[in-house]
Design a protein around this nucleic acid. Structure first.
Lengths: 255, 255
DNA sequence: CGCTGAATTGACTTCGGTCAATTCCTGTGG
DNA sequence: CCACAGGAATTGACCGAAGTCAATTCAGCG
């Protein structure tokens, strides 16, 4: 873990995790406070920085305050698989909740800031704010379904559809956290990265990307991506946004 | 939902969910009782029966009491992807926790019995037994990592390795719930099913399966599978058992 | 004993991988 | 301000793993 700088967060800053969770459930003031308490100690990272390494001990948990990163694994033959991208308001260390070590390597995609806290604090949160516990569980379930979607994309569709799905996914997540200004967005990933995410070679990413452009549904200018007709593309590749809405009616109402 | 028969569970039967969870955390009597309360209404299914259908409303939740099933999705072109297999003591409806509908189709693989309960009961559980909430969260995180493993397998390895990984995974899960007698186990799946699980055609499953047999590490007799050297095969395909152990030290101790 | 769905086998095709050369950027230092 | 270095992208030729299609065999079952 390098380039980290522990600073106390501005006390009045709104918590990114709270912002994200309150999309789904109306939170009380004390619940918001409890979430803010998770974001004491701040760390800054530059693109490419490695936050945690696969199989290495990882005691603390981290929440994304700004920017985005990805989780990946490496095989013996040197191949890499990017498992998921992680955005503002998410628990970056989801892959190490269940063990004393991290099951994946965490790498910064853009400049980003993370907030760290003790793992036992999470246990405390479940104990004192059960609604938040239930909500985190629901979000984890949604995330699992999103991952199942990627599995389907990789297992059963061709190169063009895989990339299209990935771009739609990244777009909708960036939008959800308000990191997209206009109709286009920046994807600071190399073709190698894209390939490792969707299970293709960088060479073939180039070919598929070009084929995708030829359909007219996607435009590209360096690292800037513009999807001209999101609905049309979503229909073609059967993309579903798993984060726009989640049902929390089974969780107790606010008081 | 067909062939269902609502019967009250034998009051002294041990809860499969409790049995599974207590592998990871020492549960109190009242926690065990709370878990047993989830298993009131019982349903029986035959192999091939469909328990829930993708995109259709699914209000209740189901826990697996015996047997196993799988969750799948279907694409417009008729292709199918099996997302995961679900075993005794798991929440079968994980893919519908976050919505009013199911994100996957649930199909019985073997004869199996499920226990249904109201979704709000889950909210209650989080409220009254926060340790169980935290534990369910940890298990969901582990499950997400297991799914990430499958993603890697499908995205970055060849046919033989994909099948080998799948067989090792099924074996270790069947063992975990005590459904394996000797060194071999029954896999009541067609080659089509296996293909839909690992992203290959049924034809190619046949070829890969035969290649796998030729290595001498796997033997096959109809639906019976025997892995002669589990450790050797695990090393070759880099298989990791994500369920043997999970860390719960961050969850409060029993009283 | 014949029917049906699954498994096996073979011939041929294709999508994506491999390898390698070339071009394009972008940042850097003279 | 320009030359240069090095990574990324592009392009092309060729290869191979997996898909497709179809015929044949097998196994369970009424």
């Amino acid at each position: 873990m390098n380039r980290e700088t522990a600073i106390t967060a501005a006390p009045d800053a709104e918590s990114p995790l709270a912002r994200r969770l309150s999309q789904y459930l109306d939170l009380t003031y004390s619940e918001r406070d409890a979430l803010r308490a998770l974001e004491q100690e701040r760390h800054e990272f530059e693109p490419g920085d490695i936050i945690a390494r696969e199989d290495e001990a990882l005691e603390r948990m981290y929440i994304v305050g700004s920017g985005w990163l990805h989780a990946s694994t490496h095989l013996q033959d040197g191949a890499r698989q990017i498992l998921r991208f992680i955005f503002v308001g998410e628990i970056a260390t989801m892959f190490s909740v269940a063990w004393e070590y991290s099951a994946a390597t965490l790498t910064a995609v853009s400049r980003c800031t993370l907030y760290g806290f003790e793992r036992t604090t999470l246990g405390q949160l479940f104990r004192e704010y059960p609604r938040l516990g239930a909500l985190l569980y629901a979000v984890a379930a949604a995330e699992q379904v999103a991952m199942a979607d990627r599995l389907t994309s990789i297992g059963r569709t061709d190169g063009m559809a895989r990339i299209a799905t990935l771009l739609l996914d990244i777009r909708s997540r960036l939008r959800a956290v308000g990191e997209i200004s206009g109709s286009q967005f920046e994807v600071p990933l190399t073709q190698q990265d894209l390939g490792d995410a969707v299970g293709l070679t960088k060479t073939h990413i180039g070919r598929s990307l070009k084929a995708l452009e030829k359909t007219g549904l996607v435009e590209r200018e360096g690292r800037l991506i513009r999807i001209t007709d999101v609905n049309a593309l979503s229909d073609i590749v059967d993309f579903k946004d798993r984060h726009a809405h989640i049902d929390t009616s089974w969780i107790a109402q606010k008081h």
